[in-house]
Design a protein around this nucleic acid. Sequence first.
DNA 1: GACCAGGTATTGC
DNA 2: GCAATACATGGT
Length: 275
Amino acid sequence: MSRPLSLPARFDPAQTLDCGQAFRWREAPDETGRLWWEGVAAGRFLRLRREGDLLLLDCSQQEFDGFWRQYFDWDEDYEEKRRFLSSLSPALKEAADFAPGIRILRQDPWEALCSFIVSQNNNVPRIKGILQRLCALWGAPVTEGFSAFPTPEVLASLAPGDLAPLNAGYRAKYLVDAARRAASGELDLQKIARSPVEFGRSELQKIQGVGPKVAECALLYGFHKTECFPMDVWMKRAMAVLLPGWGPERFGENAGLAQQYLFHYSRLHPELFRL
DNA sequence: GACCAGGTATTGC
DNA sequence: GCAATACATGGT
């Protein structure tokens, strides 16, 4: 590796890349045993790690400015967002302080959609395994052990039975349905990206296996509709215990970030919900 | 061997 | 409309 790009750490890789919004980043040691986060987005491979107040990225300034800057939502002021959300309630402040280095990534819409189709009634380790196999089997190879996310066109050319090696269960046919709609143009992801969130909700839910929750996740993580507030089993528990009576509208335009703080906090504090 | 996992589609009242 | 139930698979 040549000398990595070194920037003031505006986010924490462990918190941002492993808080449940993305499933294809993993931590692995280099030759000297130091741990790096490694992953692929939009067909580009990146390694990065945090050292104190610095973020080290194994890419050039051009690659950073040309792609990763946008992916990491770099120029948004998350300190300000966190201050505002923390002011709303002590419980939300507690969740935000638990992982202040979380950012909402700007992931590829198609990958986010598929990821959360796979996520339904499923657990995180298994979701990661299914997506890993999906990319290894049908994504373009990028580097040793890493592939791009398969295009809608490639998946549209398959029959649901072809996806058997994924062990995705009944979700395989949902992926194929989404791919066929996206490939045919019947589902226009670009148009969803530039339209109001209600249009996206209605369009995405035409896909088999996409209901309100999966659509909300795709819109937040893939289309960066930051007011979206996915309510899964963890969030229902979290809201009941931490913010009873609250709804998404109470958090304003950054409801999605509030949701991510609460989701991550709840997942790592399961004792809060045991009785 | 139940029970659960970042839900949804289907069915029945 | 809203409450059950099935759904594939693997981890606990």
